[in-house]
Design a protein around this nucleic acid. Sequence first.
DNA 1: ACAGTTTGCTAACTCAAGTTATTAATGGGT
DNA 2: ACCCATTAATAACTTGAGTTAGCAAACTGT
Lengths: 363, 363
Amino acid sequence: MRTTSAGTAPGGGRSRPTANDVAKAAGVSRSAVSFAFNSPEKLSEGTRDRILAAAQELSYVPNTLARMLKAGQTQSLGVLLPQNLAKVLENPYYARFLTGVGQVCDEQGYTLLLTPPLRDSMLKAIPYAAVDGFIVCGLEHDRGEVAELRRRGIPFVLVDSSAHDGVPSVDVDDEGGAYEAMRHVLDLGHRRIALLSIDPGPEHAERGYRGPLARRIAGIIRALAESGMGLDDVRLTEVPATRMDGFHAAKSLMASTSPTAIVAMSDILAFGAVDALHDLGLNVPGDVTVTGYDDLPESSWTRPRLTTIRQAITTKGRTAADLLFSAIRNEDQHPHQLLGTHLVVRDSSARPAAGPGLSGPGG
Amino acid sequence: MRTTSAGTAPGGGRSRPTANDVAKAAGVSRSAVSFAFNSPEKLSEGTRDRILAAAQELSYVPNTLARMLKAGQTQSLGVLLPQNLAKVLENPYYARFLTGVGQVCDEQGYTLLLTPPLRDSMLKAIPYAAVDGFIVCGLEHDRGEVAELRRRGIPFVLVDSSAHDGVPSVDVDDEGGAYEAMRHVLDLGHRRIALLSIDPGPEHAERGYRGPLARRIAGIIRALAESGMGLDDVRLTEVPATRMDGFHAAKSLMASTSPTAIVAMSDILAFGAVDALHDLGLNVPGDVTVTGYDDLPESSWTRPRLTTIRQAITTKGRTAADLLFSAIRNEDQHPHQLLGTHLVVRDSSARPAAGPGLSGPGG
DNA sequence: ACAGTTTGCTAACTCAAGTTATTAATGGGT
DNA sequence: ACCCATTAATAACTTGAGTTAGCAAACTGT
């Protein structure tokens, strides 16, 4: 006994009426029913009205899946995500990225299907997504997912991977961005520096840094090298990219090495760090310099306004979606897009209080 | 001439291989191919391996839509939205709501389909969403969309509507929340009050306030009435719920009536108002009291920390999704859920500077 | 050696549509 | 009255799969 709000059909039929039921009710063939909806000019006015009346009576609506199957398209765009929906949706970075994707979907009249890993596997999630194309987030080109998408013949675009031949992708100049951030802090004269970075996940041990994080670390190393330093000369902490983790990491950082500057690989982490420093009664940037990465909208609202690396996250989403749509339409287009980054100096960075005095670039 | 990355099939076939192609290649019937994947025990080891080998060779994968059609389920949950994807995704309120929905989807192994209006019509969007159920946001029960969902026999849950018989819904005690916010400001002694409210949209003229906004206004009126005031005694401004709009509205508000308190119907608007007041060199709450509505996470990070009305947005999303899943599973459950609200007093509200001195509750 | 069971596979049906080829009935022209 | 062109509707095919019923061959028991 189901107590669903359904069951309006006077015939008392259990399941939804199909075109067949309408055909029977109107005394015509099933083809005629289809014509009544899709090519009304092929039927006489009388028959058409009779069919539509019967459809109305039975409250018939064509089945969405069947129509998609026949049409060969879903009017839906998929985003293959590396994390759970809850994690992704509470992350402002993804909010902005998806906004960009959403802008294009809005223009094209497409829906947006968020596809998180199924039982911790992105690969397993793919067969459950009925979409015309995928935007794949944070995945290397040599992963099985790419092969799977190839076999399926579904158009796709990689985001935040490394540019690779034959695989369309949208990337950001992470190396340059991280370089600029570290260069800025070094140029200000800081030498006791903490690097607040993002946890590379369990695969890191076997594979090393991958994707954007690998490029950022490379940029950091380049900047340090220019000042005669190496990664070993900075205090490296890796935590998940949440405000809370940034908060706690900054606290334990201050308790141990007490750096004069904290270079965070994400604005969220930087916000948490600023919170922690305020909590300790320290002034930013008077006592400690903090820099972020991403330039989220919040970064210009916080006090002090955050010095950070601007990457056009929304543009990245838009570009990826544009690329994907031209792939879906089979248009030829340059498959790689590289987006720039640049330093935005605001109020959270300054020279160290009692610094060694040596400044000037090009150390 | 297509230059897609597809086309691995040695046969040179244009489209993706089907189970039929595999059957031909392996010299068996199509049924056998299906069995090889879904009930391997029904086939002899040799045949099964031969089929799987052929499938591998042709890089065959079962079609997602066809499987969904036959199975009668999509493993996907839909959210029917009243606004464009871009607008929704950049709105922190929705970010939190969808996080709640996402939590449940993660547990259930479901994907999440965001369905914005198609050509400005939520109704037209419904047929293009292949989902097992819908969460419908910000819609009254008497709208055509509800009827359409009924005809389709798709389970659904309304959110932010008004509780109504037979239509499952999740609602928040908006009347009580708005009452508390205004009560708090009145109790502090404020009498020159501005109400910074959300633009009710184009339908407002013919229909009046609807949904949560109607209830909030009602709560405001109740609180005012207790102090012998009416809506006419406060300055009412209605703008879209963005930080920028809050900023500009507060500026023009201060230029005209110069209220001692701004009661905002959304935290976002309150943030913008605080920005504007700081910009004018005014102190919050010293010169002007500001209260918000929603209690977004940001509200406890801003300086001053925002006095606001807490509504459990994430819980609302979770509850809606839970309700929807039990509807999908045909379990009987109480179809209405009402979530409470409560005042969170932080640092953005205080007695007016040179106020009339009269205080005490129960005015 | 023959009846009875088991194994292994396929034909035919199902999900629910859209589309092409074909037939039956009508209308017009000579 | 007969031929042709047009119209109106249907049968049959297509999208791509999963599932039941049933048939042939091989195997078992007496």
